[in-house]
Design a protein around this nucleic acid. Structure first.
Lengths: 209, 209, 209, 209
DNA sequence: GATGAATGAGATTTCATTCAT
DNA sequence: GATGAATGAAATCTCATTCAT
């Protein structure tokens, strides 16, 4: 009741502890999902007691929601950097590459996101209705403009985005499968992926005359 | 110990009950994940008592494992149908289409599979070392032959497969996200997807001279 | 309901099956006690199904009670053979020896009996009030006669019996402890025991003049 | 995982609660055996909730093991008090008496111990290989010395110990049987027992010249 | 006689959470 | 801020037993 949740800002120590909890929760949630994760495990990973953890957060779900909200920014960032004034094909390919880098550097975050969506987005519906939708709409409109102007091939812009997400996130989310089928170092895997995806999207988007 | 878990075949009633349980489990597992699902819920969905369910299976995990093993066949079937003697580009596009149809008709199965992989393939590693690896290896070799012969564009055949899986399964596994971003009927969604993916893979694979 | 329990006599096959069940039950009960034993385990040991077993007996407790009633005869037999007309010291020593042989040849029966008594004789109280009491009373009276006549040393005849039971049964019931403290073959153990107990009871009983 | 199972000592409240649980468990285990006892029953006897009990112990078996390990000390104590410098016959008779007093004052402990041994010492084998063996070996060696010196009759020292254990513990472990055969007050029973056993072991051990 | 199918009762155990200090 | 103590709810699983064929 007297926890730091009511305060507007967080003290230094609170911020530190919360960060530690977020890191631990990310680890555990990514591995076991929301339901599969136990407070126990998160607390152990964060090197604190369950009760202390509950002093900082209202419960398991609360941690999860806050965590996944933070991830939204991470997820949207590559999209936000698309430059309407840039060269269209290059812009899309650069976006693909940024998403891929994100996958490589934040595989747990990616898996956490994937888990949430697989379960039907039960916790972050409001984000989709707010900032994400806005950003996606903006991008779709931009792609459509480029297509209308004949600067990239005319395909369904939504499907193009879905495809980029699917392809880039696949290397993080399904890495277990990839490793079983073709064992590689992470570097090799992502080098390969970049080459392949660049080829594919260039082939798709470049307009033949 | 008590149930019909003895070796050999299953009687008619056993087969029926097991099928009912599998159907119910698929529904529940796809909705809540392995941990999130309760025997109670599966039993209710299958319209039987928990104990009766336990008479047929050793526990939740046992159902899950058997269920997901069955799904492997579903997953491999479209791959098995690739005809080495067919026209290469058409064969790959037909495979893409078959995978997409599978996604459309078996979204829960696809999500269940995705969950297993996301968690690191804890239950069916052995399948990857056996039948799945064999089938994938065969396909990769075939693609390589076609590439070497200049019949399809030379890309990494593994990445090509990963990409097809990622794209086609995405429409089932991440449908919650898709629906939030662009609400459509299922038919529209898959019609769009087919058009887009056909365009993309044709653009990628057809060799320009 | 139609089981063989209502019949007066048993058919050949019934007798065989019941014998098999008794043997299995003895094994399992001696190892785990009444509560610790499961029908499952007894059925497995008897190489039949739980349901079949229940066709022959009304339940776990029923098997136990019948089994332990049978053992009573075994337990009383050495006592019954004491000859009032024999030489007193020799008769008692012979009784000790018979009990010891019984322990050696029927350790599981002995342990089963011990378990029942340890738990407070919940199932065979009536036996103690009937045949066992009669036989014990007879023996106590006989011992008392011999003591009164100065043929064996005068001690409390009840305590003498208790002591003989304790000593002889100890080698079967607590064999696990004995084996841990002084590993021996069964033959050695009982040879030692016989020598020791003969010495002890002769020293006790022989009247010095 | 949650409870006070961390290494180190126990707080006052922990010590109290644990003691209460041990007392309750002793009562219940002695009455129903390990399998027959339920956490529910132990918790009720200890006047606490099942979950609170589980906060202190990992489960039924864990309580049992700790409890029976504690009893070992009780069991060894009378043995440890044998004085190598004392008068041999008197020392042994005093040991018999101490064991008998222990039986009289701790019948439930004795029965619990007996149960464990009857089942084949599944939980405390390690103790037999450690402290118990050491103490028994010491005593056997001492008895042998006395026998070699002609101070007590030469018999197998192990069998002598077994006999003392069997006789003294019998009055606690098999009291149900004794009560059925010869109802007495506890005081009478033990007074009788002491007289009888003293007679018997004196007759056995005193060396006639 | 034998057995597959089903079930009710109950036991253990996990886990998020609350309370008091 | 932190933690030891306690608890309610629910989930898994075991087991004796019944029923129908």
């Amino acid at each position: 009741m007297t926890g730091p949740k009511t305060a507007g800002g967080y003290s230094r120590i609170q911020t530190q502890k919360r960060a530690a909890i977020f890191a631990a929760a990310l680890e555990i949630f990514a591995r076991h999902g929301l339901r599969g994760a136990s407070l126990e495990a998160i607390a152990a990973e964060a090197d604190m007691s369950k009760q202390n953890l509950l002093y900082y957060f209202d419960g398991k779900e609360a941690i999860f929601v806050e965590l996944i909200q933070q991830l939204t920014d991470l997820w949207l960032e590559p999209l936000a950097q698309i430059d309407p004034a840039g060269e269209p094909v290059a812009e899309v390919l650069a976006y693909v590459q940024r998403k891929l880098v994100m996958s490589q550097n934040h595989p747990r975050e990616s898996r956490l996101f994937a888990t949430e969506i697989l379960q039907g987005v039960p916790h972050i519906k409001h984000l989709y209705e707010g900032p994400m939708k806005a950003m996606v709409d903006r991008t779709v409109a931009l792609l459509q403009t480029w297509m209308d102007a004949g600067q990239i091939r005319a395909v369904d812009p939504h499907d193009l985005l879905f495809s980029i997400w699917a392809n880039t996130q696949h290397y993080a989310d399904f890495s277990a499968q990839i490793n079983l089928i073709k064992p590689m170092t992470r570097e090799e895997r992502y080098a390969n992926a970049e080459r392949f995806l660049t080829d594919m999207y260039r082939a798709l988007l470049v307009v033949q005359d």
